[in-house]
Amino acid sequence: MHRIRRWVPLQRLREFSLVIILIIVVLIFGNQIDNYYTPRTFNRISSTVALITLVAVGQTMVVLTRNVDLSVGSIVGFTAYYVGRYVSKNEDMAPLMLAVLAMGIGAGMGLINGLLVAYGRIPAIVVTLGTMAIYRGVLVEYSDSKSVATRQLPDWIKELPQESILKFGEYELRALPAIALVAVIVFFFLLLYTSLGRRLYAIGSSPEAANLAGIRAPRMVTLAFTMCGAMAGLGGMLYLARFGTITVDAARGMELQVVAAVVVGGVNILGGSGTVIGAMLGAILIGTIEQSLIRMNINEFWKDALLGLCIIIAVTVDRILINQLTPWWSRTELQRMPEEPHAAV
């Protein structure tokens, strides 16, 4: 038993339990909804999840450093609109260049957040509450209250969500989830196996200790916000591809879903712990519940209430389990030995 405990860190256990919850949720829905286990369901859920996952990956980095970015919804909305407007004027723009443009705009907005938080020494929640309103206002001014319509877009961007990358029989991995998956893998390795990633964890765990260890926290925090902005920018481009019609209200309120996904995925809102895989699992869980409840024809108005309930249950159970398990999990076999005779008496 101790061998398992040694090789499986508590964080993995957390993600494992999320997978189990996910399976249970899917089984319940499969029981309730006819024709649930079909490629159509899978595709619909996976493209919703892809958007949330992409933005949640960026958000994870910010949350790891004890900050939060509430402006992601506005960044997604602005880039979706700007890129849509831009591509409708320059139809022969290469897809990759467009993605770079979207990420660049997002990164610029994230950089502003990061500079204000790290060098202006303003709490992240204050900065991003402000920039959320500002970026949305910029979008409204820029758009002149006109919206981007699907027919203005070039064909490749309209067909992007239907593009399939891999096929397993009828189940296909479409372009949007594939992009999200690539982002998750890249940031998974970036966070766990590079010095950059470890420094982000260090800042979140203990800012004072990180400072003493010579980590330049302001620089890293700025970088985290910039990367979060870039991911939100890419999310904006995919949002454009998925929905086609972009109004000034695009992606309003998305920040709540994203923060919820990150938190359900076991990323500590107080910084220092959590992984991108967890955030992805959180996004999958939330996306699955949301999309399946829409399919369930009993009452679609139950969606939000159940979502709120799910978040609070996930966080509470996680809290209790981790609190109970931590002492037991971190106790080694050697420490346990002398206690045995006492227990026997």
Partner: peptide, 15 residues
């Protein structure tokens, strides 16, 4: 987190 969940959940009850 609690009130984030609350804000989604209470609105859901209203719906």
């Amino acid at each position: 987190i609690v009130t984030l969940a609350g804000s989604i959940g209470y609105r859901g009850v209203a719906r």
